[in-house]
């Protein structure tokens, strides 16, 4: 029982982190049709900036609030000057371009902050442990478990009740129609891309107290996020939530029960879902 609950919590906390990253990825794909390879690097930048703010002002919260908007600002430049010329062209060009951006950013942080691993401490409020049966469980992980659904709820409210959210959903569903009814698509695209980047960086800042900050930390997470997005259904918001949960839980239970398969599990899941529901769990019928 104790092990089971611990596995649930482990899976949830990892899943929620995945969710934050995937939800940005899926929104960007849903609205813009862009598969952003550099999304993981934006996650990494979020972590590095958070670390830098902690060094400057000594507060994790400042890093959490101030870092992601900076990444979003950078991504506006990225979208405006690099991605925009590619919209008429094949998706593979976007993949290649964002891959180039990823290489650039990964090496860029190494040149700025050095190749060493960095450690960010959780804020005082969230450090420490609470008793958990005969063992203990870190507060910060519980924080992640709770924060995930909160962010999800906030996003849902944003998409359902605000003007911008409604425009976004409309554009994701039918871009042309949105354009006809007067949505300024270029502005919308920039906004969506920045929003996705903000979410990725938020995920990075939240991950910083949890794992070592180092170059290439984004490369590791990008493929798992792609899988989450695809099994949930491209562009689907509840899909990203469900996909992240499934992947997170499968990760923790797989480690315990089928260690030999653990590395292949996400891919097996991916194949099974795509072959039975070709548009993902929440993607509608193909």
């Amino acid at each position: 029982m104790e092990g089971f609950l611990a596995n649930v919590l482990n899976g949830l906390s990892w899943g929620m982190l995945l969710f934050l990253i995937s939800v940005g990825l899926t929104t960007v794909f849903g609205v813009m049709g862009v598969l952003n390879f550099a999304h993981g690097s934006l996650f990494m930048l979020g972590a590095y900036l958070c670390m830098q703010f902690v060094r400057w002002v000594g507060s994790f919260w400042v890093g959490l609030l101030a870092g992601p908007p900076l990444v979003a600002a950078l991504s506006i430049l990225l979208e405006r000057f690099l991605l925009r010329p590619l919209y008429g062209r094949d998706v593979s060009f976007q993949l290649l371009l964002t891959f180039g951006v990823m290489l650039f950013l990964d090496d860029g942080v190494r040149l700025i902050w050095g190749p060493a691993y960095h450690v960010v401490n959780p804020p005082a409020l969230l450090s420490g442990v609470i008793p958990f049966f005969s063992q203990s469980y870190p507060v910060y992980r519980l924080f992640l478990v709770i924060l995930g659904p909160l962010v999800g709820l906030g996003l849902w409210a944003f998409f359902s009740f605000t003007r911008w959210g409604k425009i976004l959903r409309a554009a994701a569903m039918d871009r042309q129609m949105a354009e006809i009814v007067g949505v300024r698509v270029p502005v919308l695209f920039t906004a969506v891309f920045a929003f996705g980047a903000w979410l990725a960086a938020l995920g990075g800042a939240l991950a910083a107290p949890h794992q070592s900050v180092g170059p290439a930390m984004g490369e590791r997470i990008i493929i798992e996020s792609f899988i989450v997005v695809v099994i949930g259904g491209m562009g689907s918001f509840p899909g990203a939530f469900a996909g992240a949960l499934i992947l997170g839980l499968m990760n923790s239970f797989g480690t315990t029960f089928v260690p030999h398969l653990q590395m292949a599990l996400p891919y097996i899941l991916l194949a099974v879902i795509l072959l039975t529901r070709p548009r993902g769990l929440f993607g509608g019928e193909a």
Partner: peptide
């Protein structure tokens, strides 16, 4: 035995599942 020890893939960043496995 092999199935009960904790070998983590190189790309792992969240070790909680492995830690839980060892602790239990």
């Amino acid at each position: 035995p092999q199935a009960e020890v904790a070998f983590s893939p190189a790309a792992t960043t969240d070790f909680s599942a492995f830690i839980t496995k060892i602790m239990n």
